[in-house]
């Protein structure tokens, strides 16, 4: 099933399929290790509902929901 990181529930994991967007935002996501095959785990939502905290390549990363919506993932996938 194709969803984005934004749709992941707390402590749910999924593998990256594709990163949308353009320019600086997209490149930063790729540089931070969000490349196809990488496994992303949803950790939590900030107290005010945005941004979110995810775990990728064994470190914690915070992104806004707008950016999370650019990362298409597939549950049960991965390298």
């Amino acid at each position: 099933m194709e969803i984005t990181v934004k749709n992941l529930k707390i402590s749910e994991s999924a593998a990256v399929k594709k990163v949308l967007g353009s320019g600086a935002v997209r490149r930063r996501l790729l540089d931070m290790g969000i490349t196809p095959g990488a496994v992303i785990t949803m950790i939590k939502t900030a107290p005010l509902g945005d941004p979110i905290e995810i775990k990728v390549r064994n470190y914690q990363l915070s992104i806004r929901k707008a950016e999370a919506d650019l990362i298409i993932v597939e549950k049960g996938g991965g390298d």
């Binding site: 600086a24 935002v25 930063r28 931070m32 914690q60 990363l61 915070s62 950016e67």
Partner: peptide
């Protein structure tokens, strides 16, 4: 500015 920040 995108908010893509490591939580070290």
């Amino acid at each position: 500015i995108p908010f893509i920040m490591e939580l070290p």
